[in-house]
């Protein structure tokens, strides 16, 4: 089964008769970027806009190198280093400006 159909938490995709995935319920998309990071062939693009539809073409996304970029950043896919292995952000937590008291 196609991974995007499987992993989408809000069930945005349907499988068509040809077996290919279709974005069937875009209004249920919560722009969580999960489908994009799981897609092994970099065929998906999640818009930075949560509430409005963005018009894009595959060509322009490919030309600016956005397609598949998050998968590459977190190091999923063959021959890549997983980000988890180099993430030392707890260090940052210690030098973040102190968290104030709760908002008033």
């Amino acid at each position: 089964m196609w991974l995007c159909i499987k992993v989408c938490p809000t069930n945005v995709f349907d499988r068509t008769e040809t077996g290919l995935p279709l974005i069937a319920r875009q209004e249920d998309c919560q722009t969580c970027f999960i489908c994009e990071v799981y897609c092994p062939v970099d065929a998906l693009y999640v818009s930075p806009y949560a509430d409005i539809k963005q018009q894009v073409t595959e060509q322009e996304l490919v030309s600016v190198g956005i397609i598949g970029s998050w998968r590459e950043i977190i190091g999923w896919g063959r021959g890549r280093t997983r980000l988890a292995e180099i993430d030392e952000t707890p260090f940052i937590d210690r030098i973040l400006p102190p968290q104030g008291t709760i908002s008033s």
């Binding site: 999960i34 990071v37 977190i74 999923w76 997983r82 980000l83 988890a84 993430d87 030392e88 952000t89 707890p90 260090f91 937590d93």
Partner: peptide, 9 residues
């Protein structure tokens, strides 16, 4: 460092 987790992973 065990004070953090990457969600997808």
């Amino acid at each position: 460092f065990r004070q953090g987790l990457q969600g997808p992973e």
